[in-house]
Write a protein that binds this DNA or RNA. Structure first.
Lengths: 105, 105
DNA sequence: CGCATCCTTAACCATATGGTTCTGAAACCA
DNA sequence: TGGTTTCAGAACCATATGGTTAAGGATGCG
């Protein structure tokens, strides 16, 4: 599943879509608007994101809303965190980062 | 550059290579050993990892050592952390996670 | 020098990926 | 009913990806 998540994140369009979805659910047309790309292309990206578990989609009702599901991102971070001891950054600064994360929820 | 990092991480073989490199530098033959895969295939994976900045390679001397460079992983975490407010996990548990990270360096 | 070792490069192949256009289904509107 | 809107699916195409085998360059050793 990590494979699917990282593969989904490897595409800039898909990362932009996820970023957009932080502002709230959106229709396919809304998600497609910023890109010089056909609507079916965006639909394909949404399918990839859905299969990676990164979005869910509400039943169509003339429009079809995409909703951010960030849980797989937590799993990805879990994997990445195992490498924190190998970052060049000092542990003092790592502590600062972690403090920051706790302070600005 | 995030694109390259996530693309590199999308392959299970490459993730396993990175994991192996946490135990120390290794030759191509050592890295190839665990996989039922030709050695040139592993060389290709190493090239991908190198281009993503995830490994560096010492000058050959009959052997060629790969060395883990975890800095890009920190950048990847930086991107992912922007989604922490959308995790299903409660913030209390997030705090626990962050505490754990600070305690077991 | 001659040869073995370690690894890269080249050529090739099958499949995956990211895009297109065209078609069509499902729900609303008049 | 019929048209419009919103989106997905199919067919297609070019290129990228992940693997193979075969060949060759660089280093160390007898």
């Amino acid at each position: 599943m990590l494979t699917g998540v990282f593969a989904a994140l490897a595409d800039p369009t898909r990362r932009a879509i996820l970023t957009r979805l932080k502002d709230g659910d959106a229709t396919v047309a809304e998600l497609a608007a910023p890109f010089s790309m056909s609507q079916p292309a965006v639909s394909k990206h949404l399918k990839v994101l859905e299969q990676a578990g990164l979005i869910s989609r509400s039943q169509r009702a003339t429009a079809r809303l995409s909703h951010l599901e960030a849980e797989p991102l937590r799993e990805a971070i879990g994997w990445l965190m195992d490498y924190r001891a190998y970052w060049a950054e000092s542990f003092d600064r790592l502590d600062d980062l972690l403090d920051d994360l706790k302070e600005q929820p």
